[in-house]
């Protein structure tokens, strides 16, 4: 009897081996991912309906109180929120420049002259270094006293006069702009800095893509008299579609995630004019004025919803590819 039972058990196990195995392989990753990614998303969505300073009372109970849609009502009339939305849109549009610029640089570099491999890898550099460092460097570039921008400006608009005791005075037809302190230009200044590593990323993607463009199609196109832009548009770009898809996806995500540069270069200033949702959320949730976890979560929820639109589209595209592949 004993052996019979164990026999049926093992045959059940072996019959269902292929049904059980995947979950055993998946459990560790899923467990981690649920705790740190999936659950927090839902907790944040829930928390956006509460007011909470992050504290617990003596019994270890959270002091959060339910306030319904109050946080969202406050967001609606919060000018800083709308400035952040506006800046997010600006980031999104201008960041997209990274894709065509990256393509152009990739085309420029797609040659086989000696040493080109070194050139290519040096062009990738900006992508590898931390955005904190990039933000610091560009902060100096924009410095109105000694930055490169100021130097170029002085060259065009300023005159240096040396009086008889040898003191230098600089008189400018137009004052040197202080880009990062200007409500009008600061965001553009940060986006420009952000484009530098992002373009590098797109260059990497397109160089790999160009490497795999079918040579026979190019030759066929040449025989048909296509060249230059026509060749690029009708023959090359269609083949670069996978690269373009990834370039657009990572650029959109990168634009909406932008945080480091703003935190380093302006901290959202002047007067909150360079805030974007990601930075504004951090500012309201953890700031010297006390923690507002509920309100912060409401900001995060708005950002999350915007990104979900794009993420859903990307997933849908991937799903189409999967079905075609299967």
């Amino acid at each position: 009897m004993q052996t019979d039972i164990s026999h049926t058990q093992s045959s059940w196990m072996s019959r269902h081996k292929l049904d059980i195995a995947p979950f055993i392989f998946l459990i560790p990753a899923l467990f981690f991912f649920f705790i740190y990614v999936v659950m927090p998303i839902f907790q944040s969505l829930q928390l956006s309906l509460y007011e909470w300073n992050g504290l617990y009372d003596g019994d270890g109970q959270s002091t959060a109180s339910f306030i319904g849609l109050e946080n969202y009502r406050n967001l609606w009339i919060d000018p800083n929120f709308w400035i952040s939305i506006k800046n997010n849109l600006l980031w999104l549009f201008l960041y997209m420049l990274a894709v065509p610029v990256g393509l152009l640089i990739a085309i420029f570099l797609n040659q086989t002259v000696t040493g080109i491999r070194i050139y290519k890898s040096l062009f990738f550099f900006p992508f590898v270094i931390s955005q904190v460092v990039v933000g610091l460097i560009f902060g100096w570039f924009y410095n109105p006293d000694f930055g490169i921008v100021a130097k170029v400006w002085q060259f065009f608009f300023c005159e240096e006069t040396i009086n008889f005791i040898g003191n230098k005075t600089v008189t400018c037809a137009r004052p040197v702009p202080d880009i990062l302190s200007s409500a009008d230009y600061a965001t553009y200044g940060i986006i420009f800095a952000g484009l530098w590593p992002q373009v590098a990323y797109c260059v990497i993607l397109y160089l790999t893509g160009l490497n795999n463009v079918a040579a026979d199609q190019i030759e066929a196109g040449r025989l048909d008299g296509a060249k230059g832009w026509k060749m690029l548009w009708y023959v090359v770009l269609p083949q670069l579609r996978p690269a373009t898809f990834i370039a657009v996806a990572v650029t959109v995500i990168g634009a909406l995630r932008s945080f480091d540069m703003i935190a380093i270069m302006t901290q959202g200033g002047p007067y909150g004019m360079t805030n974007v949702l990601s930075h504004y959320m951090y500012e309201v949730a953890i700031s010297e004025y006390g923690e507002r976890y509920g309100y912060g979560s409401a900001v995060a929820t708005v950002l999350f919803s915007i990104m979900m639109v794009f993420i859903s589209y990307f997933l849908w595209r991937m799903y189409q590819d999967e079905r075609r592949g299967a």
């Binding site: 991912f33 990614v37 927090p40 944040s44 928390l47 949702l277 995060a300 929820t301 999350f304 990104m307």
Partner: peptide, 15 residues
Amino acid sequence: FVAGNFVPFQILMVP
């Protein structure tokens, strides 16, 4: 997994 990888950090931050 793919979607989770693209979400904004801020939605995870407080929890």
